[in-house]
Design a protein around this nucleic acid. Structure first.
Lengths: 142, 142
DNA sequence: GTCTGCCGTCAACCTCTGTGTAGGATGACG
DNA sequence: CGTCATCCTACACAGAGGTTGACGGCAGAC
C-alpha cells in the first residue's frame, strides 16, 4: 500500500491508524498496548491476538462493539472503518435531500407522493423536460 | 418511545426505519421481505429470524457485514446505527426520505432540486393544481 | 367451514468471531 | 554469553453470532 493512497480494506484502515496515531511522536502502539488500553479504558474486552488478526486481514467481519471500541481508542468516528463508495453515495443523496428543504422542494415531493399514477407521470415528464433544457451538457441520469 | 424523539438503542433505530421506510406508502416491510430483499439484492445472507431478534433487542451486537447490509437496504449510512449525532440528523430527514421512496417521487424530488427557481415554481404550481383536483375535500393541510 | 399463504415467535442447532495460551524472534541489560 | 522483556505469530477451542425448521395466529379466497 502506498502512503498517499486511501486505504481500502478494513486491515489497511486499521494499520493506517497504528501508523499515524502514536504517543509522544514515538513508535507505533503495539497490539498488546492497544488491547490493554481498550480493555482498561472502556468496558469492552478485546485481545491483542484479535487485533492482530484484524490488522493482517485474517478476520474481516468484527462486531460493532469491537469496532466502536477501536474507533474510540484512536479517536476517529466509527464511520471511518465503514466509509465506502456505497456510503458516500447515500451521503450525497441525503445532503441533497437536506438542501431541498431550503429550496422548497419538500412540498413538491410530499404532494407528488399523494397524486395518482397518471398525474405523477405527467409531473415526472415535465421535470425531465425542464431538466434537459437547463442541463444540456449532462447526458445521462445518475 | 415517543414518535418525535430520537431512538437510542439499536433495536429502536431499526424499528424506526421499518416504521418510516415503506414501499408505495403501504404497510411496513415484513422481516421476511427485508431478509429476502437483502439476500437477493446484495450478496449478503441474512435470515428473517435474525432481523426479528435485532428488532426485539434479543441480539444487540451484529457484525459490520449485516449492519451495512441493513443500512444499505434502508438507504441510510451505516453511521445511522452507530453514531448518535448522525442518527439525530438523519432522523430529521427520515420522514422526507420516506416520502421520496414512493413510486417515482425520488426522481421528481432529486431532479427538482437542481432546477432553477422559476422552473421549480412552475412545477410547484402544477403539483398544487393536480393535488387540489384529486383531493377536493381537503382544503389546506400541512 | 377449511384451505392457503404469510406473518411473528420460539428453541435447537451450527458457524465463525474472538480468546487463551504458547512458540519463536528481536533487542536491552547484566 | 545468559536472562529478561516484549513483540508478532500460530492454533485449538469456548461461546456468542446467526440459521434452520417448526409452531400458532390471522387474514383473505374458495
Amino acid at each position: 500500500m502506498s502512503v498517499d493512497e486511501s486505504p481500502r480494506t478494513l486491515a489497511d484502515k486499521l494499520n493506517r491508524l497504528f501508523q499515524t496515531v502514536r504517543r509522544q511522536g514515538d513508535a507505533e502502539y503495539s497490539n498488546v498496548a492497544v488491547a490493554e488500553a481498550i480493555s482498561k479504558g472502556q468496558d469492552v474486552q478485546i485481545s491483542h491476538t484479535y487485533i492482530w488478526q484484524l490488522r493482517t486481514g485474517r478476520r474481516v467481519n468484527p462486531t460493532i462493539m469491537h469496532l466502536t471500541a477501536l474507533a474510540t481508542f484512536f479517536g476517529v468516528p466509527v464511520a471511518y472503518f465503514l466509509d465506502d463508495a456505497e456510503t458516500a453515495k447515500i451521503d450525497k443523496d441525503l445532503e441533497l435531500l437536506a438542501g431541498m428543504r431550503k429550496a422548497g422542494v419538500t412540498h413538491i415531493a410530499l404532494r407528488s407522493a399523494e397524486l395518482t399514477q397518471g398525474s405523477r407521470a405527467a409531473i415526472t415528464e415535465m421535470v425531465n423536460q425542464l431538466w434537459k433544457l437547463e442541463n444540456p451538457s449532462d447526458e445521462d441520469v445518475r
